[in-house]
Nucleic acid binder design. Structure first.
Length: 285
DNA sequence: ATGGTTTTTACTGCGTC
DNA sequence: GACGCGGTAAAAACCAT
């Protein structure tokens, strides 16, 4: 088969190989393009979600995604040993929810085509949350969704909470609440998401040329260095930059089309666009 | 909780095709 | 009329305090 040169999601040429997991992913949008390159089974190239969900190939040999790390589960001291044994490994209550959590994590990560690195990091995060007793009494699905979002942000992978919510069983608002809860309780500090990272994917979805894409990224850089992005939503800013770039390049796309792709509204695009255009125009005199 | 800011929702008019 | 664009006002959401 031929080598993949361009990311089908965002048009990026920065395709990176992760040797540890034998998978090929896009450095710009963080989408897995191919995995398990070593064994070219008949179904290795399952792109769509159904197949991806079915493909329960276990990951690396020793992984945090395994519910017991492949080792024994520590038994809490002081508790009566009334654990029911199932198979060779005893299943404690929290172990069951852990399996649930990791299953849900895998399902969502597959649907979003996220790299194995991100899944593992999220699983580690989940374990840390368990140790801090942040899980019990809360919705596992909400927490996992929020954690996946946190990890994406940490990895600089451009995914919005909305996009996570699309493949989650839980509604956006609850996931947001879980997200705020987690970063607070775990003291997680996240750098603001960079609008520039959304540009390639959005441009590709809109079928825009690389000229527009590069121009939009330049606009973001300029406006960012002028202190504009403060408090603006990253996707709205990205959308506005694309709108501006598309007009400058004679490939005009209308506001509402961009708004749809950016997951925002025409009004927001317009507001950001006006401000950018005004201030960037001043610069050229 | 509160207040300031941003975003969304909903509705309007205007010009053009 | 349909569509794209611009404006407004009020509600909702967000963020730091």
């Amino acid at each position: 088969m031929e080598r993949i040169r361009t990311c089908p999601e965002c048009g990026s040429k920065r395709i990176v190989m992760d040797p540890k997991h034998a998978e090929l992913y896009c450095a710009d949008c963080g989408v897995v393009l191919a995995e398990a390159l070593i064994d070219l089974g008949p179904e290795w190239r399952a792109y769509d979600q159904d197949q991806a969900a079915q493909r329960v190939r276990t990951g690396p040999p020793v992984s945090y995604r395994l519910h017991n790390k492949g080792l024994s589960t520590p038994i809490p001291k002081g508790l009566p040993q009334t654990f029911r044994l199932r198979g060779r490994i005893g299943l404690e209550g929290s172990d069951k929810t852990l399996i649930l959590a990791l299953g849900e994590l895998d399902r969502m990560a597959s649907a979003l085509k996220l790299p194995a690195d991100v899944r593992e990091e999220t699983a580690i995060l989940y374990r840390e949350a368990m140790q801090q007793n942040l899980i019990k009494g809360r919705s596992v699905e909400e927490l996992v969704s929020a954690m996946l979002y946190i990890t994406c942000r940490q990895y600089g992978i451009p995914r919005t909470l909305k996009e996570i919510a699309m493949v989650s069983k839980m509604p956006l608002k609850k996931i947001r609440r879980a997200y705020l809860f987690l970063i607070k309780e775990m003291g997680i500090k996240l750098a603001p998401a960079s609008p520039a990272r959304f540009i390639p994917r959005f441009c590709s979805m809109l079928g825009l040329s690389s000229t527009v894409r590069e121009r939009a990224i330049q606009i973001i850089r300029k406006s960012g260095s002028m202190g504009m992005a403060k408090g603006w939503s990253p996707t709205g800013t990205a959308g506005a930059a694309i709108y501006l770039a598309s007009r400058l390049s004679g490939e005009s796309v209308d506001e509402s089309t961009i708004a749809k792709v950016a997951g925002t509204t025409p009004i927001t695009i317009r507001a950001r666009y006006e401000e950018m255009q005004k201030r960037l125009l001043l610069l050229s005199y």
